[in-house]
């Protein structure tokens, strides 16, 4: 009796496992076949296109790549530096704006109004226009003490634009923390400021870490926009090279450098969205 009770489900189990294996094999087969068809088809379409020989020569020339790469890499280093400084500034300024916007105290009304205008304006204007306006407008004022270096001006424009976006991300995070958390913090005797600092903000920032990282990735790419006011960053260097040699390969080199940074960042965002989202 006990023997049949243990062997009978065992047999069913083996059957099910065999079926599962068959299904897995079939799925893998279908995935492989469809990949070959889709990717192969796309490759065939491009490679047999009438312009392909020219495209290969002007976009994917190995010798041009080797010649241009050191300079493009050098330009990309400037992108990285600008990105890091702007990102740090954005994280701080955006947090300050978000805190001002969620604060209810009447004394802060003018500052609150200003922050709302800041977010509306700088988030509402295309980043490329901001770079252009700050890059050419600020030096035109001819005021003592204002920066004239296009790298700094470009960085300022990016900071204005991205602090608008990021402050809204923070604000969404702060508003997503349940009212009961503030109540509990106040009930143990904390001030409003302490409740924000020790209870609300830590939870809010944890929650918005994935969207924040997402904005990092976007900013990292948008640093290339400062090229329109002159700095010799990767895209600008590649463009100059292209203008001189009538070859677009350096632009591909710049694109690849961006991918080297943005793909790992994107994977980090994915991982945080999956595992960190629960916390």
């Amino acid at each position: 009796m006990t023997e049949t009770a243990t062997t009978a489900p065992g047999a069913r189990r083996l059957e099910r496992e065999a079926a599962k294996r068959r299904r897995a094999r079939r799925n893998a087969g279908i995935a492989a076949a469809s990949s070959v068809i889709v990717i192969g088809g796309l490759a065939a379409l491009i490679l047999t296109s009438p312009g392909w020989p020219t495209v290969r020569e002007t976009f994917f020339s190995w010798s041009e790549f080797r010649n241009a790469f050191p300079e493009v890499l050098n330009g990309f280093w400037l992108d990285i530096k600008v990105f890091m400084v702007v990102e740090a500034a954005v994280l701080v300024i955006a947090l300050v704006i978000a805190m001002i916007r969620v604060n209810r105290s009447p004394g802060l009304f003018p500052v609150r109004l200003l922050s709302t205008v800041w977010v509306d304006v700088f988030r509402g204007v295309p980043t490329v226009l901001l770079v252009y306006l700050v890059g050419f407008g600020v030096p035109a004022l001819e005021l003592e003490g204002l920066p004239t270096d296009p790298v700094v001006l470009g960085g300022i424009a990016l900071t204005l634009s991205y602090s608008g976006y990021v402050s809204e991300v923070y604000r969404a995070g702060i508003n997503s923390v349940h009212r009961g958390q503030t109540d509990a913090a106040l009930s143990v005797g904390l001030t409003q400021t302490q409740a924000m600092r020790h209870v609300v903000l830590p939870q809010a920032i944890r929650r918005v870490a994935p969207p924040l990282l997402n904005d990092f990735v976007a900013l990292q790419k948008d640093v290339a926009l400062i090229s329109i006011i002159g700095p010799q960053e990767a895209f600008r260097v590649a463009q100059i090279y292209q203008g001189e040699n009538f070859n677009y390969t350096p632009i591909i080199a710049a694109a690849m450098l961006y991918l080297v940074i943005t793909i790992p960042l994107a994977r980090i965002v994915d991982r945080m969205g999956g595992a960190g989202g629960v916390r």
Binding site: A184, A185, L190, Q203
Partner: peptide, 19 residues
């Protein structure tokens, strides 16, 4: 704040700090 420091509250939904 001074008043709340002299009182304690226990909430229906606990409201513990999850972090």
């Amino acid at each position: 704040v001074a008043v709340r420091r002299k009182l304690g509250v226990v909430f229906q939904a606990y409201n513990l700090f999850p972090h």
